[in-house]
Design a protein around this nucleic acid. Structure first.
Length: 470
RNA sequence: GGCGCCGUCGCCAAGUGGUAAGGCAGAGGUCUGCAAAACCUCCAUCCCCGGUUCAAAUCCGGGCGGCGCCUCCA
């Protein structure tokens, strides 16, 4: 499996370093607000990476996705609402789980939160290790990482210090630093803020330390295999994680760094002032299905910016329908032997799909392999060259496709709760069948239009009438 | 000011040296009580200008256009 490594800016052959288990860490959500579709673009991409490693690469996963549940925004939010930090962040963690479920994210092995005692302790230990090795200094009660003690600082982001002066907005931190580029490991306690004592003075974690500490605590000895997140995290977050982890352990932190590009909305970055920040739930409130959003996210490469539009979502909806219509059609094929021509096509499609996904997660090419198969098999069905035995093989292959893409199963789950009760639909389909038998097409069409208005489509075929959600 | 990415059919989107995948939309046809679905046919020479090469959307140079990072951010 080939993956683009931000560290080298090249495609590299990936395999886990030990035990056939991929040790992967994805930077998760800061839980001061409900996650938006931009956040979820990253999470869906990493979910597909995770699934591809499992179901195409054949490896086991130990995948950690964290919650940042303490920072300026969470503290401010909790204070504003007069609730505890824990209570405040619990809400958004619950919302995340809700949205993750409707988007079909596969549960990961660990979802730690920064303020859990074991994690805070791990942070304290890492800071102590850094201190022993001479990488820290204390200023006004806060502990800082001293960049000048790390010669290869900047290797991930590849930022050159000279160029940073001219137009860069210099960090107007409220804490004093020796060098503008130094970053805080542990922030001194301020009145009214939550505080912990983990052996480096009372205070709270700096942003970067939590990921380093949790990744190594949960995934074991450095280097881990993959560290992932959105592109905006490359600097400073991931760069600083590398600095802390490598200076504390003396070893490489992560072998691969994988970054998902941003999602734009109507060609603009999402922002509250533009009113274009949507959560997965907003997609539903706009009358769309979340499966269409997942499909849309899959339809372009994870390292390219993706422009979200409502019409793009509608197109995704139609494309996905073509796949599910095809699978429905496979249900009613006559029994018989497997056809060699079909078997050959199925094998070719599997190969094309796996090779696309194994090539730096080329989901768009993977989808094309699926549609190629759909077209060919549809034609073969019309020619009566597909048996139920073939159908089983094809269905199995689609199960494989979807183990990685996770979009068809999502759509099916949605279909289980149609806008009209299934019993009523079936009753009306029966009534319409009678009407058609009587050649009372007026009544038959009336029933169909009535159901259509309520979100149910009827299709007459040789095997009878099939219904589906609009 | 520094670093980097992108520009392929009306829309979305693969392809990165060998003569343009796939999806949506559209046109015509087959099938159907009518629809829908399905199938068949049609629908691009790759932002512009130079260069390298037998051969370039793919490599190099220069433009034009869009975007990102350098600051909290997926």
């Amino acid at each position: 499996m080939r993956l683009f490594n931000t560290l080298t800016r090249q495609l590299e052959e990936f395999a886990p370093s030990r035990d056939n288990t991929v040790r992967m860490y994805t930077c998760g959500l800061t839980v001061y607000a409900r996650g938006h579709i931009g956040n979820f673009r990253t999470f869906v991409c990493m979910d597909v990476l995770r699934r591809a490693l499992k179901y195409v690469g054949g490896w086991h996963m130990h995948h950690v996705v964290n919650f940042t549940d303490v920072d300026d925004k969470t503290i401010a939010g909790a204070q504003q609402e007069g609730v505890s930090l824990r209570e405040y962040t619990d809400r958004y963690i619950a919302a995340f789980h809700e949205d993750a479920a409707i988007l079909g994210l596969e549960p990961v092995e660990d979802m730690p939160r920064a303020t859990d005692p074991a994690n805070l302790e791990a942070m304290g230990n890492m800071i102590k290790a850094l201190d022993e090795r001479g990488h820290t200094y204390v200023s006004e009660g806060s502990v800082y990482f001293k960049i000048s003690t790390m010669p290869d600082y900047g290797k991930l982001a590849r930022l050159h210090h000279e160029g940073m002066q001219a137009g860069a907005r210099v960090d107007a931190d409220e804490y004093a630093k020796d060098d503008a580029r130094d970053f805080v490991l542990w922030k001194a306690t301020k009145p009214g803020e939550p505080t912990w004592d983990v052996g480096v003075g009372p205070g709270r974690p700096g942003w970067h330390i939590e990921c380093s500490a949790m990744a190594l605590r949960l995934l074991g000895e450095a280097p881990i295999d993959i560290h992932a997140g959105g592109v905006d995290l490359i600097f400073p977050h991931h760069e600083n994680e590398i600095a802390q982890s490598e200076c504390a352990t003396g070893r490489q932190f992560s072998r691969f760094w994988v970054h998902a590009e941003h999602l734009l909305v109507d060609d603009k970055k999402m922002s509250k002032s533009l009113g274009n920040v949507y959560s997965p739930k907003d997609i539903v409130d706009h009358g769309h299905r979340v499966s269409a959003l997942r499909y849309l996210l899959l339809s372009s490469h994870y390292r390219k910016q993706l422009n979200f539009t409502w019409s793009g979502l509608a197109q995704a909806e139609e494309s996905l329908t073509r796949l599910t219509d095809f699978l429905a059609r496979l249900q009613s094929l006559p029994p018989g032997e497997a056809h060699p021509a079909v078997v050959e096509r199925v094998d070719a499609a599997r190969q094309a799909f796996d090779s696309a996904l194994g090539d730096d997660l080329n989901t768009a090419a993977g989808l094309a392999a699926m549609f190629d198969l759909v077209r060919v098999i549809n034609g073969a069905i019309d020619a009566r060259d597909v048996s139920s035995t073939d159908a089983t093989a094809i269905t199995d292959l689609f199960t494989h496709f979807d183990s990685v893409l996770g979009v068809i199963s999502l759509r099916r789950a949605e279909d289980e709760t149609p806008p009209v009760p299934v019993e009523e639909i079936e009753q009306l389909v029966e009534a319409r069948k009678d009407a058609r038998r009587r050649r009372d097409f007026g009544e038959a069409d009336r029933i169909r239009k009535d159901l259509e208005a309520r979100g149910i489509l009827l299709e007459d075929g040789p095997q009878g009438t099939r219904w589906k959600r609009a």
